[in-house]
Structures are given as structure tokens and as C-alpha cells.
């Protein structure tokens, strides 16, 4: 009650032991902040990054290492320790907010030049530790920057619609006999067989379309990666995802992919949806695999 009044929230510089409260080692690297790394590029100016909010109230700033530049931000260590952060990110709302904040910084950085995004929650106990770890991997970053420079990622997903079984060939046009009508059992079996057949046909045609789409778009792309299809039920999705892929294209390639997808849609016919997303910062092509 009497010993520690709340410290004033204006810690603009780091005066040694200017704050009361539990003793923190202010003479050593500040243990109350951690360094969150968003992305790595060749060079960013402080003003390039000033617009991005990031995850804390501190500015998003460049951190030079080994001739490259990381995009980093100080975050309160107490809230970004292993347990606190795991717990936070385990909450869907917080996870989303954190993911979107991370993504917003990555996107802002990428607007300034080739950018390799880091996986979410790459954290260090201060700038020196961050610099050491980043420097140790400088070669990987250079290779990745070479790969993604001047390029963007497009996401393409192909879905089979559940209603796409179409005209339900097994269903008699004159309606279905009631459960007590004569022949109801046989009619039921017929119907089920028809539904089954239609479902199988729909499925294999959707899978064929998926392969066609992937082949056509891979031919356009500098690189292509198949991601794991999202399962049924994801985000309330009722369609079956048969392709989830990412394509690395030149920044100028938007028209080409749009045209190609339009043509593929025409060929795929009813029952199959082809959706695109992008341009993305090339997340899917940052890593080696």
C-alpha cells in the first residue's frame, strides 16, 4: 500500500533506477522489455516504419545487423514472457489481434523493399540478443531476400461445393414416396445410391480441377507451394477444399494470374469454386521448404 505507488507511465528514456517498484536490473540490459522481430530486409529508414503500430506503444524501428536490417519493436517483457504470451496467443481474439498487428507491420515493411517475414512470436531479451541470432542466420536471410525480391505471393484455393452433386440422378422426378408407401425401401436405396454416385463424381471432378489449376498456375509462377487444405468446418466452411496453394509471381503479375484464374473458372464449370487472395508478402516462400 505505502511502499510502491504506481510508477508514472512516462518512461521516455531509461534513467537508471528512476522507477520504484520491484527491483529490475536497470544497470544491465533492460529486462523489462523484449525485442519482437517482425521481418528482415536490406534497409529501412525509421520513417518508413513510423506508421505501423505493432504490438506495443513503442515505435516500430529498424535494427541493423550484418549488412541487413530487421524490423523490431520493444514489447513489455512481463506480457511477452513464455507463459504470458502462450496464454495470450491461445485466446482466439488475442491471437487474431496479434496476428493482424504482426501482419500489418510486415506489410508496411514490404512496401519499402524486399522483405522476409518472420514467424509469429520471434522474441529476444533485448536488441543485442536479437542481433546475435539474426547475424547467425544472415546467410539464410540473404538467400530468402534474393528469392522474394520484387515478387509477391498469391493464394489460390479450390473448393468443391456440397450442393454440386448436381441433379441428384437417383431421385425420381415425381417426388419421393412416403415412408409407408409401397416400394419406399427400394426407392430409398436407389436414392442413396444416386446421391453416393453423384458425390463421388463431384469429388473426383473437383480433384481433377484442382490438379489442372495447380499445373496452370505453377507454369505462370516463379515458384509454387501447396499448403495443407483447410479441413471442413474451418471458419464455418461447408465446401470441401481440394486445393490450397501459394504462387510466387513478379509484382507485375496480378493481371496474368487474374486472367488465368478466370479462364480456369470457365473450364471448371459449376460445382467448383476457385478463389484467390493476395498479393501477400511472400510468407510461404520465406523459408526453405
Amino acid at each position: 500500500m505505502t511502499d510502491t505507488a504506481p510508477a508514472p507511465a512516462t518512461a521516455h528514456d531509461r534513467p537508471a533506477a528512476a522507477q520504484d517498484g520491484p527491483a529490475t536490473a536497470h544497470d544491465r540490459p533492460d529486462r523489462t522489455v523484449a525485442t519482437w522481430v517482425f521481418a528482415v530486409g536490406r534497409a529501412y529508414g525509421a520513417e518508413d516504419l513510423a506508421g505501423a503500430a505493432g504490438l506495443s506503444a513503442a515505435p516500430v524501428r529498424p535494427l541493423a545487423f550484418a549488412g541487413l536490417t530487421a524490423v523490431v519493436q520493444d514489447v513489455p517483457a512481463a506480457l511477452f514472457g513464455r507463459e504470458a504470451l502462450t496464454e495470450r496467443l491461445s485466446d482466439p481474439g488475442e491471437l487474431e489481434r496479434c496476428a493482424r498487428a504482426h501482419h500489418a507491420v510486415v506489410t508496411a515493411a514490404a512496401a519499402c523493399g524486399p522483405t522476409v517475414p518472420m514467424a509469429l512470436a520471434t522474441l529476444y531479451l533485448g536488441d543485442e540478443r536479437a542481433r546475435a541470432a539474426l547475424t547467425a542466420d544472415a546467410g539464410r536471410f540473404r538467400t530468402a531476400l534474393e528469392r522474394v525480391g520484387g515478387r509477391v505471393e498469391w493464394g489460390v484455393k479450390v473448393y468443391a461445393r456440397p450442393d454440386a452433386a448436381g441433379a441428384r440422378p437417383g431421385v425420381p422426378a415425381g417426388g419421393v414416396p412416403g415412408p409407408d408407401a409401397p416400394g419406399a425401401g427400394r426407392a430409398y436405396l436407389e436414392r442413396m445410391r444416386g446421391v453416393q454416385r453423384a458425390r463421388e463424381e463431384g469429388r473426383s471432378s473437383a480433384l481433377r480441377t484442382a490438379e489442372e489449376v495447380h499445373a496452370a498456375l505453377s507454369a505462370l509462377a516463379v515458384a509454387a507451394r501447396r499448403l495443407r487444405p483447410h479441413g471442413p468446418g474451418a471458419s464455418g466452411e461447408r465446401r470441401t477444399q481440394v486445393l490450397n496453394a501459394a504462387y510466387l509471381l513478379p509484382e507485375s503479375g496480378a493481371d496474368r494470374i487474374a486472367a488465368a484464374v478466370e479462364e480456369l473458372r470457365g473450364r471448371a464449370g459449376a460445382g467448383v469454386d476457385i478463389e484467390t487472395s493476395g498479393p501477400w508478402v511472400p510468407y510461404s516462400f520465406a523459408g526453405e521448404a
Binding site: G81, A99, R100, P117, A119, L120, L123, D137, A286
Partner: peptide, 30 residues
């Protein structure tokens, strides 16, 4: 604090930033 493109599909985003991106060893292991 999040001016990000909120239209971005969350599943698309999560699979990219949890699964993709460069992974290097961090101090705080989440």
C-alpha cells in the same frame, strides 16, 4: 493499434504466420 487489412481471411493469415515465415531460434520460446 491494428490498422491491418482486417479483410484478410484469418485462416489464410494464421497458416502463413504460424506455419510459414522464416523461423529462427528465439530467446523466449513460445
Amino acid at each position: 493499434s491494428v490498422p491491418g487489412p482486417s479483410a484478410t481471411n484469418l485462416a489464410d493469415l494464421l497458416e502463413r504466420i504460424l506455419d510459414k515465415g522464416i523461423v529462427i531460434a528465439g530467446d523466449i520460446k513460445v
